[in-house]
Simulated assay, not measured.
Amino acid sequence: MIAGLRIALVGLVFALLTLALLPVQLAALGLGHPLMRRLPRWWHSLMCRAIGLRVRSHGRLSTARPLLLVSNHVSWKDILVLGSVADVVFIAKSEVRTWPLLGWLARLQRSVFVERQQRRKTGAQVSEVSQRLIAGEVVVLFAEGTTSDGNRVMPFNASLFGAASAAVAVAPEGRVHIQPVSIAYVGLHGMPMGRYHRPVAGWPGDVALGPHLLKVLRHGALDVDVIFAEPVAFDAGTDRKKTARLVEARVRDGLIRALGGRLDAG
């Protein structure tokens, strides 16, 4: 009974909030007004509160530009989490565009959709991402290429850093800044979350979205740590594969420290 009421309440908040902000976002998009970048952050922040995601940031978003954030990917909730702490746009796989509701929201948030299996489109897609970076937008890349169970960081795909390489050629100082970001789901109802409860947070690719969404709404009260590591400078002489491994290591370190309750240990 309580779980059902909670799901209904979250649904009501989602509907009212989205309907209230939708015309404003559409107008901002049509006019190219800077509000189109800030409005999604407000929406994400309020939806995090409604769902019960308690987000804590550690470190700071870099002020350097162009800036590419590279993060691990645990769940669809990562969009809400990162979107609540910074004005960002996301790189999403093309299938997301066609997802019911989530695809529509992703388009309103100005996500960049990429088709990783069609190499003939790679150039245009990389160009769009690099243009966003040069325009001063903070772009988020989930470099694992898929979601995980929340207990580990999977290998990063170095080819996904191609947008950084493309942006270097036209960047004002000839470099792009890549900032590692770790997302860790660490608590449930104020208690440390062990491996047993991690499926509430994690959304591996073989788990259907609907049942997982309902599970999250029933539980609520998830504590999430977002850890910003020091950015890595990327220029024309930088090895893309080495950079991918370095960024992956920093993201993994942040996740391990957060899951182990050692964020204050440095």
Score class of each variant (00 low, 15 high):
Leu68Trp: 04
Arg38Val: 12
Ala265Gly: 08
Asp225Trp: 03
Gly202Pro: 04
Val55Glu: 04
Ile134Ala: 09
Leu16Ala: 14
Glu173Cys: 07
His197Glu: 14
Gly32Pro: 10
Arg245Lys: 10
Met191Thr: 10
Glu173Arg: 07
Val176Tyr: 08
Asp149His: 03
His58Thr: 09
His44Gly: 06
Arg56Ile: 11
Lys121Glu: 09
Gly123Val: 09
Glu230Tyr: 12
Pro23Ser: 04
His219Asn: 13
Ala27Gly: 08
Ala86Cys: 12
Ala8Pro: 05
Gly190Lys: 06
Ala244Pro: 09
Ile7Met: 10
Leu21Met: 08
Trp99Thr: 03
Val140Met: 02
Tyr185Met: 13
Val170Trp: 07
Gln117Met: 13
Met193Cys: 13
Val207Leu: 05
Pro172Tyr: 06
Phe113Ile: 04
Val129Leu: 01
Arg240Val: 15
Ser84Leu: 00
Gly4Trp: 11
Gly254Trp: 01
Leu101Lys: 04
Ala163Asp: 03
His44Thr: 07
Val200Ser: 07
Lys241Trp: 14
Leu9Ser: 09
Val74Cys: 15
Leu39Cys: 09
Arg218Phe: 15
Asp239Met: 01
Ile227Val: 15
Ala106Asn: 06
Glu137Met: 01
Gly4Val: 11
Leu69Pro: 09
Asn151Trp: 15
Ser75Thr: 08
Gly187Val: 09
Gly187Asp: 14
Tyr185Asn: 10
Gly162Val: 06
Pro155Thr: 08
Leu214Gly: 06
Gly260Glu: 11
Thr98Cys: 01
Val247Gln: 03
Tyr185Pro: 14
Lys77Thr: 14
Gly210Tyr: 15
Tyr185Leu: 11
Asp149Leu: 02
Ala171Gln: 07
Ser71Pro: 11
Arg49Gln: 13
